[in-house]
Write a protein that binds this DNA or RNA. Structure first.
Lengths: 257, 257
DNA sequence: CGCATCGTTGAGGCTGATCAACTCGGGTGG
DNA sequence: CCACCCGAGTTGATCAGCCTCAACGATGCG
């Protein structure tokens, strides 16, 4: 974590995460540089902080650590709507459209870089491909939320957990935070429960059962998918929803066409 | 329905729905015209059809009728992830990013106009404000999905139904499909069940209980919110997530700033 | 050492699912 | 014209998945 942070501070451009993002969003070196130039502050946030202060006009790119978006109902029930992982851009909706109906919180210490919302907005005029990349990130978020709705609406506890662990693996793999079928998941069972709409107790029991069946290991903030194939068949997992590339009409725009 | 359809065919520009959308997204007459010019086909779709054929490169703007996005699991369980109402733009993600992981289906006869995905993509270069409007629509969808996640994860049947009916009222009100606290909801209880992650039977019973308490009427495809205030307090409803306007930096871009 | 946080386990209860049967209205074909 | 069927809604009875309450173990930290 610490060395990662230093690396971020010293030279964003050579950060391995940035390299991954470049590939993922099909950006040129110049375009990456535009983003890096816009980033005006790289900071280390302790666990338990808001990723983006409410009323902030900034967008936050997470470089390291886990965070989440959540809503708390009036009686205290909490629903985590999404986990925010390295490489994720948060706060776009809030700053582009002036609505922030959800809170964010760091679940671990995090390294983030901030970009002024105004600058993101100006991308629509000054860097169409980057504006499209922002839209792409937002559409990807939408796809994950849609899958989340399916899980909460029609999958049982076991299927929900299988889906969550597989999706996290896919997401972390893309940004290089995975070792084969294992990855760090530094959050409590309570967070999992609040994400999957279950009680802590039931998460614990389901986890135990899955462990017993040799489906996965989960301890010390570390996940090992022992039987990924079976996990996929349990919940019908398909990583399609995380895929997708820019339409060629955007990627290779030809004004004369 | 029929006269609405004729009206659409004869002159999109004077269609009351288009007027509402103009206000909603803060578009100029010229910008609306750009969209209307791009629309190459207005059609009437019978109930039970796919709104956008898979592999289609088109985006669909619904002018009249109800549709939904859904996913069917391997064993037949179905989850409706969102209802698509007049004024909604569907298929943006599919055509901009080449991923279509969800199906759509018309729940009633629908009137839609089609726009070539390529043209939407080109907006990023040729009409930044319209590209931002498309992003805005996508962000709004994301906000609704987020609320849906909260409902399915942490609200009980009664609260989910209250939230659904209130949100539908808000959405339909914006596009002028509401009469005070009443609106047409031409779908079956099965659709409601599949949207809210409940069984048909339980939807029916919950509805009965809410009717008995004087919270709402629901019959013949018509909803009347008898006690909107109490409904709101039941589920903590807040229409904020449907609000939001373009960042001034986009709305009133000044290249010299 | 004491306290807090997280994980684990048992017992019992409730929300909502499942199964099954019946009603009602509308369409359809004999 | 009527018998029939079909889809949608309604209701009862039973069942199960998950929740709640409660207690206890393990670990880390001041």
């Amino acid at each position: 974590m610490q060395e990662n942070y230093d690396c971020v501070m010293e030279n964003l451009a050579t950060n391995p995460l940035i390299e991954k993002l470049k590939l993922l969003m099909d950006l040129t070196d110049d375009e990456v540089q535009v983003i890096l130039d816009l980033s005006f502050k790289t900071q280390k946030l302790p666990k338990g902080q808001s990723l983006i202060p409410s009323n902030s006009e900034n967008v936050s790119l997470v470089m390291d650590g886990w965070a989440c978006r959540y809503k708390i109902l009036s009686d205290g029930r909490r629903q985590i709507t999404s986990f925010i992982l390295p490489g994720d851009l948060t706060g776009v909706r809030a700053c582009l459209f002036g609505v922030s109906d959800f809170d964010t919180e760091t679940l671990t210490d995090c390294v983030t870089t901030l970009i002024d919302g105004k600058d993101i907005a100006r991308l629509f005029y000054e860097a169409p491909r980057l504006a499209a990349a922002v839209t792409w990130a937002s559409a990807r978020e939408e796809a994950m939320l849609t899958e989340h709705v399916v899980s909460l609406g029609r999958r049982n506890a076991r299927e929900r957990m299988a889906h969550l662990f597989l999706e996290l693996h896919s997401r972390l793999e893309i940004v290089g935070f995975v070792e084969k079928l294992a990855y760090g998941m530094p959050i409590t069972q309570e967070m999992i429960a609040d994400c999957l709409g279950l009680s802590i107790v039931h998460v614990n029991r389901t986890l135990k059962a899955m462990r017993k069946e040799g489906l996965l290991e989960y301890y010390n903030g570390y996940v090992i998918l022992k039987n990924a194939k079976k996990l996929r068949s349990i919940c019908g997992y398909d990583s399609n929803h995380l895929e997708g590339t820019l339409h060629p009409e955007i990627a290779d725009y030809d004004p004369d066409a």
